[in-house]
Amino acid sequence: MSIDTPETTARTVEGAEKVDQQFAQLAEWLGQRDDLPITGRYAEYLRSKIGTGNAGTLHFEQGKKASAFSKKNMADRLHRPGKADRSVFVRTADAPFDNYGRLLAYLAPNYSAEERAGMTRAQRATFNLDLVREGWAAPFIIYPSIPGEADLPMFLDAAARAVTAGKGIWGESLTMPAYEYRAVEKLYDIAATIVAGKTPKDRYSWRQRYCVDMRTRRLHGPEDYIDIDPVYRLWIWPGDVRAAIADLNLIPAPRLVDAD
């Protein structure tokens, strides 16, 4: 919960190479056609990332590295020399599963009350935070499931330090956070349908969430999240926008107000 690790849904090197080809093809279409459901501004942003011919492979390799780090980190933090390993503490979100059936939760070592008494909040960090701290997960906070007032600053500081230091996925300038990668997969399918002369079921289903800059409380449209530093993106589903504006005192960005 609140993080997004690179996808390994390509499953194999060959699968990742197929994604390479699909994304490169999409980059060509974005440069040639004006009937695709995307703004020219965002198309240019994407083309720089997906036209390389190895965007799928890069993401797949990052996913494997993130998985390897997570497994080792969990084993290390759960281990107790001479004793049974600690169990895992699980705190689920209000809606415990996402659209892909994956559990949304914070995970941490289940320290005893005695252990917790002698530890700082940072030492008791969740495995979620560990992934962010080491650059193997992008922040992915979705309203209204926002970390508490004591946890949010620690979370954002860890993310900012990872980005600045070029840790994990942030060591590559062409990195796509997993939410961006999944959106591009959907956009490819929609674009392929249009190029084939058919009508997609929902042209804009590839991008739905609005995005807020947590530093300014400015609300941006679905394609304008690129104007926000990845550390400070707060995502909002369309059905929650009205409530979020009231709850968080949001200010719509000029581009959103002027949109047709």
Rank of each mutant, 00 (worst) to 15 (best):
E28G: 04
R33L: 13
G31I: 04
K201W: 14
A43Y: 09
Y143P: 12
T175D: 02
R218E: 07
G40Q: 13
K49R: 15
A27H: 08
V212S: 05
Q62N: 15
R102T: 06
A159M: 09
T9H: 12
D85A: 02
A259K: 11
E185V: 04
G166P: 07
A108H: 06
A191S: 15
R255P: 00
D213G: 07
L156R: 12
W29C: 06
A117P: 07
D202K: 06
Y181G: 06
Y106Q: 09
W206M: 07
M176N: 10
I3G: 00
F155S: 03
A95S: 13
G40M: 05
V184H: 07
D202N: 11
D4C: 04
L250S: 05
A95G: 02
D258P: 00
D4E: 09
Y181F: 15
E134L: 01
S173A: 15
Y100L: 09
A125I: 04
D213H: 12
P153Q: 11
A66H: 04
D247H: 05
R255M: 00
W235Q: 02
Y225N: 01
A191G: 10
I38D: 12
W206L: 11
L104C: 07
A138M: 09
L104A: 05
S70E: 10
R182D: 15
L58T: 07
Q21I: 09
T8W: 02
Q208E: 09
E14S: 09
Q208C: 04
A150W: 02
V163G: 00
Q25H: 08
R209V: 08
K201R: 15
Y181K: 14
N73G: 01
G239Y: 05
R182E: 15
Y181I: 12
F140K: 03
A55T: 04
G118L: 06
Y188N: 05
A160D: 13
A10I: 02
Y106S: 07
